[in-house]
């Protein structure tokens, strides 16, 4: 049934969900959008970080704090992943992206099974004071956990936007995204910069994974639902744009929530991929693309 109130509800909640989608996609916006690495492992890394947050939750550690604790670990993991990718695919050149895609799918499966073997297939949740409660703003009930994710998402994209615009390394990363060859001619080593950037992308995934387990219960194969969402957001944003990622996330979030309330949950999985197909067909450079 259509009603304006339902639509308003959907838009408000969808915006929050959308900011959360932006947060889980930012890592991919860096690794795929800026560095052209076909990192389909990104969603699996999110889930891995969620399990990390769940483990730390056993010691009464707040999930967001847990995400921050996991960041350095994931930074190192990201650097290791990129090193392997670079040595085996980028250096060899031919068909790097396609073989790389197969490689990252393989890693994804290994992570999935690793989690299943270590923790089983049950759903996992975490506890925190903001989980399970909700507040009313202008007669719209909003779960507190969504607000927590929303605020963190805004903070994360804000900090990263500052980093990419104001700091030397951040600008170097953007330079590598624009023209690797020119950077080499300036005497900088693009590989080391990309390695650093991939580390950041993975570290951001750690924090986003903590947000994921705040927003919903996590199971080992949850990453498959997020392959579509994250790639949709990143491609829609236009590769590598931070503010674009936020807008694209919100578009996806609102679209999903509206379909969810009008037609039911069984149609939701197709939304991200349909949007993705339309964008790829009509405007492959994305809404805010170069």
């Amino acid at each position: 049934m259509f009603s304006w109130e339902l639509l308003l509800d959907a838009v408000v909640l969808g915006t929050m969900v959308g900011c959360f989608y932006a947060a889980v996609s930012i890592g991919l916006a860096i690794s795929f959008g800026m560095l052209d690495v076909p990192n389909v492992t990104h969603p699996a890394l999110l889930v891995l970080a969620s399990y990390g947050a769940w483990l730390l939750g056993g010691f009464e550690i707040d999930p967001i704090l847990a995400g921050l604790i996991l960041m350095p670990l994931f930074f190192v993991l990201g650097i290791a992943l990129y090193r392997v990718y670079h040595e085996t695919f980028e250096k060899r050149g031919s068909q790097a992206a396609v073989r790389g895609l197969a490689f990252f799918f393989g890693i994804t499966f290994i992570i999935e099974v690793g989690i299943i073997m270590a923790f089983g297939v049950d759903q996992r949740t975490v506890q925190a004071f903001y989980i399970g409660k909700s507040i009313e703003i202008l007669e719209i009930r909003i779960p507190m956990r969504m607000i927590a994710a929303f605020v963190m998402a805004l903070l994360l994209s804000g900090v990263l936007a500052l980093y990419f615009n104001r700091t030397f390394l951040g600008r170097a990363i953007r330079a590598v995204a624009q023209d690797e060859e020119a950077l080499r001619l300036m005497g900088a080593d693009p590989v080391r910069i990309k390695q650093w950037a991939f580390g950041i992308a993975t570290a951001v995934a750690a924090l986003a994974g903590a947000l994921l387990i705040i927003v919903q219960p996590v199971e080992p194969t949850l990453d498959r639902a997020y392959i579509g969402r994250t790639f949709c957001v990143v491609v829609m944003a236009g590769l590598g744009s931070m503010s674009g990622t936020l807008v694209a996330g919100i578009i996806l979030g609102v679209a999903e929530t509206i379909v969810l309330t009008m037609f039911g949950a069984s149609w939701a999985p197709a939304i991200s991929f349909t949007l993705l197909l339309i964008i790829l067909g009509v405007r492959p450079q994305g809404l805010f693309g170069r």
Partner: peptide, 20 residues
């Protein structure tokens, strides 16, 4: 319109849409 990795992603999209 699509080559390389974008074609691959589009085929994943086709899968999920068909499934839905």
């Amino acid at each position: 319109r699509l080559r390389g990795i974008f074609f691959s992603i589009a085929t994943v999209a086709v899968t999920i849409i068909a499934e839905t």
